[in-house]
Design a protein around this nucleic acid. Structure first.
Lengths: 131, 131
DNA sequence: CCGAATCCTACGCGATACTG
DNA sequence: CAGTATCGCGTAGGATTCGG
């Protein structure tokens, strides 16, 4: 036990404030990419190939153009997806996961693995949200 | 109570409806465990050992007792943490991660890994939320 | 110290309609 | 088709207060 530890109220006692945020923020970033009502489904939809706007929307019932538009923009900002504009008539637009976007796959797989075990353990009969 | 209406969802065309939700729901469950403003910090705080209510609260600035109480309950419901009541005077209460709760570590580590790379790639200079 | 109860705000998201 | 604009609701989360 160290004697220098008294005023670090922001983090677990053995971590400096800076250390703590360094641990925390990246995890939050990753979480932020995947959370929300539609992000995951949109990403998964795109893992199966290029898709057009309406095509994605049709595949995900309940998804409104407003939300789809918003989510696709965030995917672009984060370089997880690209927007292709083909100069046809009328113009054709397709969205595609970037190679970088595909690096999410192992992560999603991990979440799926843990989530599956968790379902077996807890959720199956008694849970409130995630419906 | 009745919440099983998700079976009518459509999915990427090559997946059956059932297949799709089987892929999706567990991931959402896992995400749900970790998302929210405080869950992660509380879990991390508890990875370093048993903690008392106020102790956790002091370690996480901005966290109100209401939220802490709520989050701890969810952790209990999901068997990720346990509440110990010691019959001292006044009563002493401690929270502790369960072994099961510690199975989140690799998952969080994965999120941290991906998130760190993502920070380097994108976020560092330009982002809107979570930072 | 460990919470519960109450009130309030901000924001994600849905519904609907409209534009190019 | 590929989006935008406007309105409104539900709920996560904040501030404050009270009780054991």
């Amino acid at each position: 036990m160290e004697a220098t530890e008294h005023d670090k109220r922001k983090c677990p006692s053995h971590l400096s404030t800076g250390e703590c945020n360094k641990q925390l923020l990246p995890v939050k970033d990753a979480l932020d990419i995947l959370s929300g009502k539609w992000k995951l489904q949109i990403i998964l939809s795109l893992t199966f190939g290029k898709k057009r706007f309406r095509q994605i929307q049709r595949e995900i019932p309940g998804l409104t153009p407003k939300m789809l538009s918003k989510e696709l923009k965030e995917l672009e900002i984060n370089e997880l997806a690209v927007r292709h504009v083909y100069d046809t008539l009328p113009v054709t637009i397709e969205y595609e996961l970037t190679p970088y976007g595909r690096t999410l796959k192992p992560l999603i797989a991990e979440l799926h693995k843990w989530g599956t075990k968790h379902r077996k353990r807890i959720i199956a009969g008694s849970r409130k949200k995630s419906g």
